[in-house]
Amino acid sequence: MRIMRLGGLFLAASLASAAAQAQGRPDMGKLMATGGVSQLEGAGGGGLAPWALITGYGSRDSWGANAHYTGVRTQDYTLDTAGVAVGLADRIEVSLAQQHFKGSLAPLNQLSIKQDILGVKLRLAGDAVYGQDVLMPQIAVGAMYKRNKGVGGLGALGVNNVTQLGARDDSGTDVYVAATKLLLQQSLLLNGTVRATRANQMGLLGFGGDKGDSYKAMLEVSAAYLVDRQLVAGVEYRRKPHNLGVDNEKAYYDVFVAWFPSKHVSVTAAYAVLGEITVFNPTRQRGAYLSVQAGF
């Protein structure tokens, strides 16, 4: 508890310091694409994994913000995410997102689950852009508080909460450390994130379960090639825990292309593989991912 209190005080002090630095109008001072895109849970990064980069184009003396919508369509499910995020002084990021997961194939064709996510990220060390002459990457720590808003469409089965599917809780917090290295001469971006989590399918099926309820460290990696100033292509992989007997949860991975026509808009398209979602529909889910972000 003492560590949590000290961590909260440090974060509050950092937020106050960043807010004091980030005064006036946004300066759009960062390089194109260096805020990343909006990740599925609302953080700045790739599509699947948060990166150590801070969202928006505000420099150390400014701030930036964006709004995004992401849609994922597989054979039997859809996932829609919408949210907003703010970056302060290229040091602090705060994000808010809502996910809406729906089924389209019986017996889960009426399934509807929503989840709210509040995220915060703090850059601790390094600089992905200006640290080209050192090996040290940009490093950030972050947390995502998630609250599941219940299960719809399964009333006939007497199910209206994820705990009735075997989850231990309907809310939880993920904590992660991300390291991002941008190699401008090689046109490469490399990211590694280690996330401590109890979440089932990002929290859409709750937290913990009959197969496990402890925090587990899961690796998430991204590699991207900067084709030119406006186009980025890459791959991502994200491990996830297997806590529920009704969900044979597997890793996520994707292949993506992100287009940045200007600093105000980005469009990301991907082919994503999400594994099996539940034993009621044991099919490997794969399909299209499309995300649009607008901001400054």
Rank of each mutant, 00 (worst) to 15 (best):
V265F: 10
A12K: 06
V257H: 12
K211R: 12
D254Q: 12
G87R: 08
L231C: 04
G206V: 03
V227H: 08
T55N: 12
D116W: 00
S59G: 13
T278D: 11
K30Q: 15
A224Q: 02
V177F: 03
N160Y: 13
L118F: 03
L205H: 05
S187K: 14
K181T: 03
A49V: 06
Q39V: 04
V94M: 15
G287N: 06
P107M: 13
V129Q: 06
K149S: 12
N66R: 11
A12I: 10
L88N: 01
M4I: 01
K146A: 02
Q99V: 06
K263V: 09
V72I: 15
Y176W: 15
G7M: 00
Y176F: 15
G7P: 00
V86A: 11
F280H: 08
H100F: 07
A67N: 01
Y253F: 11
G152L: 11
T70M: 08
L6G: 00
A16T: 04
V221H: 04
N200P: 06
L290N: 07
D61N: 14
F207R: 02
V72T: 06
S187A: 14
L6Y: 00
K30D: 07
K211D: 08
A143C: 13
Y130E: 05
N248H: 10
H100T: 13
A179K: 00
N161M: 05
